[in-house]
Structure formats: C-alpha cells, structure tokens
Deep mutational scan, measured.
Amino acid sequence: MLEGKVKWSNSEKGFGFIEVEGQDDVFVHFSAIQGEGFKTLEEGQAVSFEIVEGNRGPQAANVTKEA
C-alpha cells in the first residue's frame, strides 16, 4: 500500500488526484474509495491505496482514508 494526500477532488464529477511524494500524481475515481455511504475525499486528506493500470494509465484502487 502507498500513502499520499488528496491533491484535489471533485465530488460532482466523481474523481480527483492523490499526491505521492517523489512520484507523479495518481488519478482516483470515487468507485475506488472503500467504505459505506457517500464516498468523498477532502483536499489534503491522508489516504492509503494501491496502484492499478486503468484505461488511461495508472490509477488508485482500494483507497482508504487515514484517521
């Protein structure tokens, strides 16, 4: 699992980007967020995730919010 911080997200469009130190930003779709209820990410929020190869390149999977 990698750790990063949410660079920005748009809940209306359903995606955002995660900033990882020393690496390119990672695309995240809201379907990759683990948990119940409305899935949102806040700018600056710490997250853990895996990287998978998506249709348009690397993207985050199994995203969990850190406490």
Rank of each mutant, 00 (worst) to 15 (best):
V28A: 05
E50M: 13
R56G: 07
A61T: 09
N62S: 08
H29E: 05
N10W: 08
E36T: 12
A32Y: 06
G14D: 03
H29T: 04
N10G: 03
Q45P: 00
F15N: 01
E43S: 12
L41R: 01
L41M: 06
K13E: 06
F17H: 02
V28M: 07
L41E: 01
F38S: 13
E12N: 10
G57M: 03
F17T: 02
S31D: 05
T40I: 11
Q23A: 11
G22Y: 05
V6P: 02
G14Y: 10
V63L: 07
Q45G: 06
E12I: 12
E43L: 15
V20N: 02
E43I: 15
V26D: 00
G22P: 02
G16T: 02
E43Y: 14
A60T: 02
G37T: 09
E50T: 14
Q45I: 08
T64R: 14
N10F: 08
A67V: 13
G57D: 02
N62F: 08
E12W: 10
I18H: 01
S9I: 15
I33D: 02
N10C: 11
V63A: 03
W8E: 04
E50H: 12
Q34P: 06
V28L: 06
G22N: 07
F15K: 00
A61C: 11
E53L: 14
E36W: 10
G37R: 06
A46R: 15
K7H: 06
L2G: 05
F27P: 01
V47C: 05
T64H: 14
G57F: 03
G16R: 00
G44F: 04
K5F: 13
K65E: 04
T64D: 05
V26Q: 01
S11W: 13
G14M: 11
E36I: 11
F30Q: 05
F49E: 02
S11I: 14
S11H: 14
I18L: 07
G57N: 01
G35T: 09
F30I: 07
N62Y: 07
H29N: 05
V26K: 02
L41A: 02
E12T: 11
S11P: 15
F38T: 13
G54I: 05
I18K: 00
E66A: 14
G44Q: 04
G44I: 01
A32V: 07
G35Y: 06
S31V: 04
G16Y: 09
F38L: 13
G37Q: 08
G54R: 05
I51N: 00
Q45L: 07
V52I: 12
Q45R: 04
S31F: 05
G37I: 07
G16P: 00
P58H: 06
A60N: 02
K39D: 09
V47W: 00
K65N: 07
A46N: 12
V63H: 01
I51T: 03
K5A: 06
K39Q: 14
D24S: 13
I51D: 01
D25R: 02
T64C: 11
F30N: 04
F27H: 01
S48M: 13
E12A: 12
Q23K: 10
E50S: 11
Q59H: 08
E36L: 10
F27Q: 01
V47A: 00
E53P: 11
E53K: 10
A60I: 02
D25S: 05
E53G: 07
F27E: 01
G14E: 07
T40Q: 09
V63D: 02
E12Y: 10
F30W: 10
S31M: 06
K5Y: 12
L2K: 10
W8Q: 00
V28S: 00
G4L: 04
V20H: 03
M1T: 12
W8S: 00
D25V: 06
E21L: 12
G14P: 03
A46W: 15
V26Y: 03
E12S: 12
N55T: 13
K13L: 11
E53H: 13
V52R: 08
F27M: 02
M1E: 06
K13P: 02
E43Q: 14
S9T: 15
E21M: 12
A60E: 02
K5W: 12
K13I: 07
G35P: 05
E3H: 15
L2E: 05
N62L: 07
G35S: 08
S48P: 01
K5D: 04
G37A: 10
M1F: 12
N55M: 14
T64G: 05
N55K: 14
Q23R: 14
F15P: 01
N55C: 15
G37S: 08
S11N: 12
G44H: 05
E43D: 09
M1I: 14
L41V: 07
A32K: 05
T40Y: 12
W8K: 01
N55F: 15
V28C: 06
G22R: 03
Q59M: 11
N55G: 10
V20R: 07
L41C: 05
G22I: 03
F30H: 05
D24G: 11
F17I: 04
I18C: 04
F30L: 05
G37M: 07
A61H: 11
A46T: 14
Q23P: 02
D24Y: 09
A67H: 13
E43F: 13
G37H: 08
Q23N: 09
A67D: 12
K7I: 07
F15G: 01
G22K: 04
P58A: 07
N10M: 06
N62K: 09
V26C: 05
K39L: 10
E36R: 06
G54A: 05
G37V: 08
W8C: 09
E21D: 11
G57K: 03
G22M: 04
F38M: 12
Q23W: 12
V20M: 08
T40L: 10
V26A: 02
G14H: 11
T64M: 13
F17L: 04
Q34Y: 08
S31G: 07
E66W: 13
L2F: 13
A61D: 06
A61M: 11
M1V: 13
W8R: 00
G44C: 07
N62D: 01
E21I: 11
V6N: 02
E21K: 12
N10H: 08
G22W: 04
G22V: 02
A60S: 02
I51S: 03
V6D: 04
A67T: 13
G14A: 09
G44E: 03
G44D: 03
G4Y: 03
A46V: 14
G16S: 03
R56E: 06
D25M: 06
V47M: 03
N10Y: 06
Q34G: 09
Q45Y: 06
G14C: 13
A60K: 00
E53A: 12
K39C: 12
K13H: 08
Q45N: 07
A61S: 10
Q59P: 04
V47E: 01
A61V: 13
G57H: 03
V20G: 01
V26G: 00
Q59Y: 11
E50I: 15
S31I: 04
D24K: 14
F15T: 04
S9R: 08
H29D: 05
A61N: 08
E50N: 13
G37L: 09
T64K: 14
A67I: 13
G16L: 04
K5R: 11
E53W: 15
V47N: 00
A60Q: 00
T64P: 01
E12K: 14
E42K: 12
E53Y: 14
E50R: 11
